[in-house]
Design a protein around this nucleic acid. Structure first.
Length: 811
DNA sequence: CGGCCCCGCGTTTTT
DNA sequence: CGCGGGGCCG
């Protein structure tokens, strides 16, 4: 019956698919068809009569989940919708929402993003009169994250002497108290941070046996992808849920564990057999992705790690070309070399740009590569796994919705009370904050209280402030009512416009403002799309009528979404640039790994410990195994760091590759690099720099034609391309087109050479300023109620002034 | 109150 | 070097 599912699988894969009725560990080497096995196993189970809703499949990205669901649907049809499949965070945020009240959270809890966490921590530190450069929000946040991922609650933390000693040594003795206060405030605000989604799930499953049992019965079969990247909190959740049936299947590759910095425990996969003694182990060792050379080379590097699970990865593909290693003088020249090589190979093989990727260790390395690609006119895209909400406009809009959904969300309140600016300043906000704290109520309630206090009890200033707050409160109340009556999209549109966000971006006519409007539009589109999906689910009976497209649910999904989860408008025939971490799970015919240098890859900080270094090596392994046919590694002798040139030496990983697989254009084992050439450091730097500058200037004039080089740094601003949300079928007017008149006015205003109406000055006027002396007006830009003047002063140079304030006298 | 300027900081990687 | 936060001026 299920023969078609098994067709084309190799014996090891087939075994891993068929033996679904016992705990299983599937060790899946890079490129070994892991996703295929996982999806086939699920499809096979369904064919064998397992009910889809009894299956829980957990992944690390939404994208992976969507992809898997699609492939399963192709095999077994629409039944796949009933599989509970998604990221840990999204699956458990839904479970938490259904049970929030049991653990003392409101059903409409909102999710704090890392900035909210930091902002709240800052408030707490300030309230306790602690020094904020000793108690840095970032440090506190990561320590809290560590505690939560290790399932250490504040009470347990404070009781733990070892942790207390750590904190004293780190000069933050009060950390435990801050952690406790932070948790108290989150609860008070009805909000959870990312890590809470795992921690609170654990608390729920621990404290509510009936809930635990319900989910244990529901999720008869549990599958976990990328098991090597699970942290302790995730591990315990999985253990709890799988206790009853023990039908747990984990898939992973210890050699690709690269997330320990955020709490992932490689031990989870290494000790699976101890946790589940009757587990069956399947090894997928045949690599279908890469050439033999690439697989063998990657193996030869990873052998330098001590802690490994024994497996023999091999490829039966072509032997392929050797791995090309090149060295440049500087990072810029490295970029130049890489891009030239890339272009030539792609051209001579007649391939697409999209078949090539440039991988780097840290995001800031992308800059030089971008410049080189732009110089050669090669299209590229940067694949940055930013969270969607990292765009300010999205964060603002989401904060409005958060406050409407959950008025106790103080961080949302603080974010939007004066955004866009409506004349409510810091003093007022602080007053509200204090009032709220004194009375132990949310800031929203405190604001309402101010508004309802009779005017007779206020002085004139207070009355004015109170009126402004009143307008804000009124607006939020109106929007709350609309939430009940309107559809999701219309409601979102109303929030965006009534809040004044759209208007404020329309008045600016900058590329940033335009992109902000586009992003808002995308966000609204995603509401529409979510709505349609819910309607479909109601029609199919999967969702109850009363559960109609809930804004809370949408909000939680959006908070857990990253740019990478969105459909890239694949259309692009473009070279891909990204970090090695982001590249996990992807493959390209041509892969370039740049910056293969000591202290960069492996990174300086990682080398402090053996485990750190081994993780870097796994990262290098991941990078190398992304390549299907051609792998090219590069390094530079010197590189810009913090504005300075610094020497570097080729990465140890380069010489760890068995040399028979390498084709290097320099000696990989010189022992000493440029950095140790120690006649006198100063002049060595100078001579290299001179050499570099000459070479570079030559190249530049070759390629730029007219350029004298100085223009090259200008005009490099390219609006960040924001990956598109899935396209909407219906046509909807673009936000920025809704009101072209405003935009037009702005556009003509900025370029108008003569005086704008109402401005007492014109371009070319000679003027005098009390401090800057005499000068000439260079340009005038009209603002809402004023004019921005650009004046070149004879003595003090160019200044930008506001006509109303500048007190200029015409000469 | 809001915009501008200066200073200090940081760089791993992110669900 | 680029950015965000804090302080000061218009």
């Amino acid at each position: 019956m299920a023969d078609d599912i098994l067709e084309g699988l190799n014996p090891a894969q087939r075994e891993a698919v068929v033996n679904y009725d016992s705990p299983s560990l599937i060790i899946a080497g890079a490129g070994s068809g892991k996703t295929r096995v996982l999806t086939s196993r699920i499809a096979y189970m369904i064919r064998e009569g397992v009910a889809p809703h009894n299956i829980l499949a957990l992944t690390f990205t939404n994208k992976a989940a969507a992809e898997m669901r699609e492939r399963i649907t192709a095999m077994v049809g629409e039944g796949s919708r009933y599989i509970r499949m998604g990221t840990f965070h999204s699956v458990f945020s839904r479970i938490l929402r259904e049970n929030a009240e049991l653990i003392g959270f409101p059903q409409s809890f909102t999710i704090y993003e890392p900035n909210d966490t930091k902002s709240l921590l800052k408030t707490i530190v300030r309230e306790r009169n602690l020094s904020d450069d000793r108690y840095k929000p970032g440090v506190l946040a990561s320590r809290i994250s560590f505690a939560k991922n290790s399932l250490i609650t504040p009470g347990a933390y404070i009781a733990n002497a070892t942790l207390a000693a750590d904190d004293r040594r780190a000069q933050i003795p009060e950390f435990g108290e801050i952690y406790a206060e932070y948790c108290r405030r989150c609860r008070q605000n009805g909000s959870m941070d990312f890590d809470d989604l795992l921690l609170q799930t654990n608390i729920l499953l621990r404290d509510c046996p009936d809930v635990l049992e319900r989910y244990q019965r529901l999720f008869r079969y549990i599958l976990v992808d990328e098991y090597q990247d699970t942290n302790y909190a995730q591990y315990v959740i999985i253990r709890r849920l799988s206790q009853l049936h023990s039908n747990l299947c984990v898939v992973g590759d210890d050699a690709q564990s690269i997330y320990s910095f955020r709490g992932a425990k490689i031990e989870n996969i290494l000790s699976f057999r101890r946790d589940y003694p009757d587990a069956k182990v399947f090894k997928l060792e045949q690599n279908y992705r890469s050439t033999q050379t690439i697989v063998d080379a990657a193996n030869s590097v990873i052998e330098h790690n001590s802690r490994r699970m024994e497996k023999e990865c091999f490829s039966k593909g072509e032997r392929g070309e050797r791995i090309h290693v090149m060295k440049a003088y500087t990072d810029r020249e490295e970029a130049e070399m890489v891009v030239t090589d890339l272009r030539d190979r792609i051209r001579s093989n007649g391939d697409q740009w999209s078949e090539a990727a440039v991988l780097y260790r840290t995001n800031n390395q992308s800059l030089v590569i971008e410049e080189a690609l732009r110089r050669k006119g090669i299209p590229y895209r940067i694949y940055k796994g930013n969270s969607f909400y990292e765009h300010k406009e999205i964060k603002d809009l989401l904060a409005y919705i958060r406050l409407i959904v959950n008025p106790r969300d103080d961080e949302a309140f603080k974010r939007i009370i004066n955004t866009p600016s409506r004349g409510i300043g810091d003093t007022t906000v602080e007053r509200i904050e204090n009032a709220a704290r004194d009375r132990g109520i949310p800031m929203w309630d405190a604001a309402e209280a101010i508004v309802t206090t009779p005017d007779t009890e206020k002085d004139s200033v207070m009355r004015a402030v109170s009126r402004k707050i009143g307008e804000f409160v009124g607006m939020i109340r109106t929007l709350s009512l609309e939430r009940e009556t309107k559809g999701l999209y219309d409601f979102g549109m109303d929030v965006a416009s009534r809040s004044g966000l759209i208007a404020s971006y329309r008045t600016q006519n900058t590329p940033e403002a335009t992109s902000a409007l586009d992003n808002i539009e995308e966000l609204l589109n995603s509401m529409q799309q979510f709505n349609e999906q819910c309607e479909a689910e109601i029609r199919s009976g999967e969702r109850e009528e009363f559960e109609r497209a809930g804004i809370e649910e949408w909000l939680q999904n959006v908070m857990l979404m990253t740019d990478m989860d969105k459909n890239e408008e694949d259309g692009g025939n473009k070279v891909t640039l990204m970090t090695v971490h982001s590249a996990k799970g992807l493959e390209y015919k041509y892969v370039y790994i740049v910056g293969c240098e000591e202290n960069l890859f492996p990174s300086l900080r990682a080398m402090e410990s053996v485990e750190g270094l081994e993780e870097e090596r796994r990262l290098f392994y991941v990078a190398l195994t992304r390549a299907k046919t051609f792998a090219t590694l590069s390094c530079a002798e010197m590189r810009f760091k913090w504005g300075n040139m610094e020497f570097s030496r080729p990465s140890r990983f380069l010489s760890e590759i068995n040399p028979i697989y390498v084709d290097a254009d320099f000696n990989l084992k010189p022992g000493r690099g440029a950095g140790t050439r120690d006649t006198n450091g100063e002049s060595a730097i100078e001579s290299l720099r001179r050499r570099y500058d000459v070479r570079y200037a030559q190249k530049r004039s070759e390629t730029a034609g007219s350029g004298n080089g100085s223009a090259e740094r200008q005009n490099t601003y390219v609006p960040k391309s924001v990956p598109q949300m899935p396209q909407q079928p219906q046509m909807r007017p673009s936000l920025r087109k809704l009101d072209d008149s405003t935009a037009q006015a702005g556009a003509s205003g900025t370029t108008a050479p003569a005086a704008a109406s109402g401005c007492p000055y014109s371009v070319g006027d000679r003027v005098e300023h009390a401090r800057f002396g005499r000068g000439t007006i260079r340009s005038i830009e009209p603002l809402a109620t004023d004019h921005k003047l650009m004046v070149v002063f004879d003595g003090s140079g160019e200044k930008t002034l506001l006509a109303r304030f500048a007190k200029l006298t015409k000469l």
